[in-house]
Design a protein around this nucleic acid. Structure first.
Length: 584
DNA sequence: AAAAAAG
């Protein structure tokens, strides 16, 4: 390890003789403010210098070659195999069109009303268009290839914050466009930054950015997206997760990695094998942080972030994303972030129009035949096949297998995804489902959050979850990208604790609440699902409430200028199933 | 209680 560090320093010093060494995580002395870089930039103006200084250098040599960041570095002797085009063959179709002329049929108005609040010191103002953000030509091209027309609310706020080098605690739902929000600044920062030449000839790799996410499929999805965003930028993205052959992943890593997307368990494994060093991490993004803690990942995450060789807060840029903001996440935020900006994005109010929610009283023994009725009705309506997928959530892995089998022997092409299936089976299930070969997917909560599967027109809560947040996440798998969706829940005496939160949620979403459910709700069982003081945003910056903000600053806290307009129009719906976007 | 994630 010491030898490695020495080698690294040596190479770094060598590099410094030709280049401004802006980004030096290992340096003991603080960075000069004028050098900007992702590690400073806390005081507004310095962030500008970063751009100014790099601009002449920026643009690089067209495709692939670039200075500083990038996996090969200059003059790398490594063969540069052709980068697979993640957009397919028609990548450059429509590139002539300008941003504002494109129309992909997405219901953009759905995003106008979403309330956004920021707090913290010197919050950079939000942008309204991608054109206002200087992400660079290559990334701009990819934004257009992705057919992104304008930034989602979380992107409008988070990207400028991140580009200014600030740490970010963002409370946003899946589907709000988070992935792009943290990927764009990371990619652009890596392209522009000058990073030390990474040592070659050693078996350890030194990524510059790390993105952690709770499930393997989510990591895969982030990887897919990040590859699109970084196409032809020379920035290399590699994914590592469990259940897949580690040696293959190690080989991928050894071919070079700038951005590493990983699940915590596999990353710890790679770190223990010294295949990966976090010494040069300049950007750290934790996605679905609350989910990761729910899953008991806190020890692994703390191990990765605090007990390995990652630069401390302030020397790296950290972005923490979480749908909720309970105490444990607040602790994580104060431990992992430095002078962070707090950003909270309300749920998409208008998307309540996009998901029709139904609840039916079904005894456990009747669920199968009831599901069959639903599926038959769906087929009678001619909605099946690729354009209309049905996602059925169940409580247990065993239940998932059983239901899948039962559907299959009854002539319904179904597959299943859960944690007891092999990774191969899981990926295969997702593939055949997406393709429409098996238009019915039976899933446990492994598929509840974050997964973006186009054309899911019906989510069936065969077994209701015990947590209303999980319900919101599940039904959010439909009604995406401005399309309408249907969510059906089977309710019975086993779901009494869900009666009130479910009835409240549906009411707020302007859904018809069955009279029998209202009756159950009024009896108010259980208290676990109360969402205390959630209000319009569900969460608030806890620093406002306590003595945390000891500097007594807070001058700009809840600075009206940084809040989006349209609160007046926002029709409550704090728990609306705000999970629609074309952009996550 | 169940789910997820390292074998």
């Amino acid at each position: 390890m010491l030898g490695l560090a020495g080698l690294l320093l040596l190479q770094g010093d060598h590099l410094m003789s030709h280049h401004i060494f802006k980004n030096k995580p290992m340096a003991a002395e603080p960075l000069a403010p004028s050098q900007g870089g992702p590690l400073s930039g806390f005081n507004g103006p310095t962030s500008g210098s970063r751009w100014g200084a790099s601009r002449p250098d920026y643009g690089r040599q067209g495709g692939g070659g670039h200075t500083g960041g990038g996996w090969g570095g200059r003059g790398s002797g490594r063969g540069r195999e052709r980068e697979v085009n993640p957009f397919g063959n028609d990548a450059d179709v429509d590139l002539e069109q300008s941003f504002d002329q494109e129309n992909t049929g997405i219901n953009f108005d759905a995003y106008e009303d979403i309330p956004v609040e920021t707090s913290g010191e010197n919050v950079p103002p939000p942008v309204n268009t991608f054109a206002e953000i200087d992400l660079g030509e290559a990334v701009n091209l990819n934004i257009r290839r992705c057919k992104y027309v304008k930034p989602t609310p979380v992107q409008r706020y988070a990207i400028p914050i991140s580009l200014a080098g600030r740490d970010l605690m963002a409370c946003a739902q899946t589907g709000s466009g988070k992935t792009a929000a943290f990927c764009f600044p990371i990619i652009s920062g890596i392209m522009r930054g000058n990073f030390p030449q990474r040592p070659r000839g050693v078996r350890t790799v030194f990524p510059l950015a790390l993105i952690l996410s709770p499930t393997r499929e989510l990591s895969m999805q982030i990887h897919e997206e990040a590859k699109k965003f970084s196409y032809q930028t020379g920035v290399r993205v590699v994914v590592a997760y469990g259940g897949a052959p580690i040696n293959q992943q190690i080989r991928e890593l050894e071919r070079g990695v700038d951005i590493l997307v990983a699940t915590p368990g596999r990353l710890v494994d790679l770190l223990e094998r010294a295949k990966v060093s976090l010494q040069l991490i300049s950007y750290l993004a934790l996605d679905e942080a609350d989910r990761m803690l729910d899953m008991g990942f806190e020890p692994q995450i703390r191990r990765i972030v605090e007990q390995m060789d990652m630069p401390p807060p302030g020397e790296r840029q950290t972005m923490l994303f979480s749908a909720t903001f309970p105490r444990e996440i607040q602790r994580l935020a104060s431990d992992f972030l430095a002078h962070y900006i707090f950003l909270t994005v309300g749920r998409v109010g208008s998307s309540t129009d996009l998901i029709a929610q139904r609840v039916e009283f079904v005894h456990d023994g009747d669920k199968r035949s009831h599901l069959m009725d639903l599926l038959h009705a769906q087929m009678a309506n001619g909605v099946h096949g690729k354009q209309s997928l049905t996602l059925v959530f169940v409580e247990t892995k065993k239940g998932a297998d059983a239901l899948e089998h039962w559907l299959c022997i009854n002539g319904f092409p179904a597959t299943a995804i859960h944690g007891d299936r092999t990774q191969q089976e899981r990926e295969q299930a997702l593939r055949t489902f997406k393709r429409g070969d098996t238009p019915i997917l039976v899933a446990t909560d492994v598929a509840a959050r974050g997964l973006d599967i186009p054309h899911v027109s019906h989510v069936v809560n065969f077994d209701l979850p015990n947590d209303i947040d999980d319900y919101v996440h599940r039904i959010g798998r439909t009604g995406r990208a401005g399309k309408t969706g249907l969510a059906t829940a089977f309710f019975n005496d086993g779901n009494l604790s869900m009666a009130k939160p479910l009835a409240d949620l549906m009411q707020e979403a302007n859904q018809e609440v069955p009279e029998w459910l209202t009756r159950y709700a009024s009896r108010s069982y259980g208290g676990r699902n109360r969402r205390a003081g959630a209000g319009r945003f569900g969460v608030r910056d806890f620093r406002r409430d306590s003595s945390y903000n000891r500097s007594g600053g807070g001058v700009n806290y809840y600075d009206g200028g940084n809040s989006s307009g349209g609160y007046g129009n926002y029709s409550g719906g704090a728990y609306g199933p705000g999970v629609t976007s074309a952009w996550d």
